[in-house]
Amino acid sequence: MSMPNLRVRLFGIACLAIAIALPFYVSTYYTQFFAKALIMGMLAMSLNLVVGHGGLVSLCHAAFFGLAGYVLALLSPRYDAASLLTTLPVAILCSGTAALLIGALVLRTRGVYFIMVTLAFGEMLFFFFHDTKFAGGSDGISINIRPEIAVAGRQLLDLDKTMTFYFVVLGFLVGVIALLTMVVRSPFGRALAAARDNERRARSLGFPIFRLRLTAFTLSGALAGLAGYLAAAQFGFVAPQMLGWHQSATILVMVLIGGLRSVTGPLVGALVLIGMEEVLKAHLDNWKLVEGLIIIGIVILLPNGVRQIWSMVFGASPQRAAEIKPAAAEARHA
């Protein structure tokens, strides 16, 4: 992956400018909607570290997302606001630890096993929250009061204001993009990609593959925790469905739509998918049927995501498309 050229950088700055200007021009409903979409984009980007850069198709990502939401719900006092500055690190730590433990087991497997085992462990967490009473069982729990950002009793930001919340989400999002870009370009990220493209060769070069992948899996789970915390704070409600594997698969769809080889691609994918769902829901009763068919169509027609349309319009180098090939061959091998 080459350094971003000027055009890409300008494009990024333009997008950020639009994102900052957006809440001043749209209604509160759409500010909320975009905050939700950006949170899902954050979630999809975190998954892509494992799927796109690590070459591992994980189906338990929603479990780490939902777990952090439950941590917030359980830590929130009933009639008082939880402090974001203390509960957010705890939530991220819980998701990261869960990812570390599950990762240590599932990364012993390859290929299709990995998919099945991640699915199974994700469902284990789902059933844990679904079947046990302390977290509200299948009904879930509501978070009555949004967490607050306060230092020594003085409130710094009022998260109850839709616009403030949106900007906090946007701030975290920019942070996550910066972090992931740094990780992907670091020697660690390159070693991870090497293991994806040719595991045997990377191993013979002396890369500690298991440790690399476990680190990526843990980091990805922790970032999913950040997204889950924000989502729970926004909706004021957590339910087991948040951890379910349909959610995991939906995030994977976002990753595929956005394209696997870039940091921000999945963010685009999330915006496309959530936007599409919004339109379908408004117009159709059986919108899931159409969504399913669209997903099937995307898988068949656009294996490299909307980037394929993108590159036709923006004229990206054909070399980019060629980069996708080795992953398919590797996956087939397993």
């Binding site: 799927v51 198709v57 769809v253 595929l256 696997l260 399913g292 099937i296 995307i298 398919a328």
Partner: peptide, 16 residues
């Protein structure tokens, strides 16, 4: 095709 395509196509089938 790679596993990701298989997973997502069959997920689409589930919705349908």
């Amino acid at each position: 095709r790679d596993h990701l395509a298989q997973v997502l196509l069959s997920f689409g089938l589930i919705l349908v």
